[in-house]
Design a protein around this nucleic acid. Sequence first.
RNA 1: GGCCCCAUCGUCUAGCGGUUAGGAUCCAUGGUUUUCAUCCAUGUUACCGGAGUUCGAGUCUCCGUGGGGUCACCA
Length: 460
Amino acid sequence: MTVTRFAPSPTGYLHIGGLRTALFSWLTARHNGGEFLLRIEDTDMARNSEDAKDAILKAFAWVGMSQDGEVVYQSKRFELYTKYINQLLDEGKAYKCYMSKDELTALREEQMANKERTRYDGRYRDFNGTPPEGIEPVIRIKAPQEGIITFDDGVKGEINIASSEVDDFVIARADGSPTYNFVVAIDDALMGLSDVIRGDDHLYNTPKQIVVYNTLGFKLPNFYHVAMINNENGKKLSKRDGATDVMDYKTMGYLPEALLNFLVRLGWSHGDVEIFSIDEMIELFDPKNINKSSSNYNIDKLLWLNAHYIKNSDDDKLVSMLLDFGVDLRENDKASEILNATKERGKTLVELAEQINLIINAPTSYDEKASKKAFKGEAKEILNTFADMLVLASPTTKEAFHSVMEKIVAEKEIGFGKIGMPLRVSLMGSMTGSGMDEIMSILGVSETIARIEKAIASIA
RNA sequence: GGCCCCAUCGUCUAGCGGUUAGGAUCCAUGGUUUUCAUCCAUGUUACCGGAGUUCGAGUCUCCGUGGGGUCACCA
C-alpha cells in the first residue's frame, strides 16, 4: 500500500514550500488509495512550540488536506527510540563518544583550515579504555567506512554518495534524547512509509538515514526529493518576497483550491493543462513527473487562478467565505445578483468584498476626478429628470432599468455617456464598476433615487 | 572550500535525436462593454557557453559558467 507523510517540525508556521511537498505527498497517497500520515517532529524540546504545531494543523484544515489516522508526535515516542539506541549499543553497531564539544569544535576548525570536509574522525569508534572524567557521552552510529551509498531517487535519478562523506553521526545527545536522522528513519520505517516525498534540502540526510535503515534491517522506501521554490530572482524565498505563511493567503483572500492549483503546477505539469480541480489533481498526479529543477515563485499566476476560482465558485460558498472579509450577504435576498455583478471584478476575496461594498453601501464621497468629469454641464438636470422617470416607470428588473436609461437618452437626445457617467458616479462614487442597470435593479428604485438625490445635492 | 543537485520565453512549463520549439501567465494592441472588469483575437519574448557523438542535438557525452542545496549534541 502507498503510504506517504508530511513531517514538519513545529518551529514556525506552515511555509508555502512545505505545503507544496505536503500536497505532493497527499496527492500520491490519494491517487493510489493509500494513506497520508502527519508526523510532528518535535524531538528538539528547546525549539518546539505548541502554537507552531497548532498553526500547521490549522493551515492543513484550511486547504482541506486530510490526514489519515492520528497525528504522530515524536516527543511521545522517546521510549521506542531509546530501545533502538540500546539495541544498537548492545550489538556494537553504535558506541559512546566522549569527545567534548570543545574538542569537536577544534577538530572542525582544523579540518576547515585544511579545506577538508568537516566530519567526526571516529576516535571513539573502537574505544575500550577508561572514559574521561566529567563527560556525558553522546551515542554515535557506526556508519560504513568505505564504499558508496547509493539510492534511486524518484525525482533526481540515481544518487551516489561516498561513505567517506557520511561520518559516525550522533544518534543520541548527551542528555539521551535521540536526533533527527535517527528518529526519522525509524518512524518512516515503522509507520510503513512506501514513498518519502520531501524537499531536496534533505537529499544529504538520505544517506545518513539509509545507514540507520540498514543497521536496523529496515526496508527502504522510495525517496523523492523535490527541488525548492525560490523567489523570482532564483534566490531563497523569504518574507521579503511576499507571503510565505500559508495562512497569510487566507487573509489575503485566496481560495484554497487556487493556492493548491498554483502549487501543484510548481514543479509538476500534465501536458498543457493549467486548471486542476482537486479531483483532477488526484487522478493525474504522479510523483515520477516531478521536475528536477527548482522553480521560482511568482504571484501573477496565483492571482489569475484565484480570479478563475472566484468566478466559478458557488454563491453559497462565496457568501460564507466573504464573512471573513466583512461582508455578510446571508440575509440579503439580492445576494445572487450582487455576486453576479461583482464576481468577475475581484481577483481576491478582498477585492470582491470591496466591489460588493461599493454596491451595498452608498458612496460617502465621490472620486474627485470622476465627479469633476461627470457632474458638469447639464448633469444635474439630467439626473433629476432620470429620477422622475424612475418614479413613473418603477422598474424592478435589470432590463426595465435599462429601458429607462434608453428612454432618457432618446427623449433628451443625448449620448449614453451623458446619463451613464453622472449616474455611475452618483451610485458608486467612481467611474468604474458593474453595469448600471444591474446595480440599479439590485438597489431598487428608492435607494437608487436616494443616491441620485444625494449626488445632486453635492453638485454645487 | 569538499560533496551533491539543477539549467527552454521575465515567470510557470511542454518537449523525451528530425517540431515554423507548443501552452499558460505577464506585457502590448485590437474587438466586445455607456465605464471598469470579464471574455475573444493578435503580437513581442526562450533552448547559458564551448567542444564532441550523429546524416541530424533543446534533447546524448564531456568541459566550462551560473544558480541552488548540504557539511550540528537543528530539524
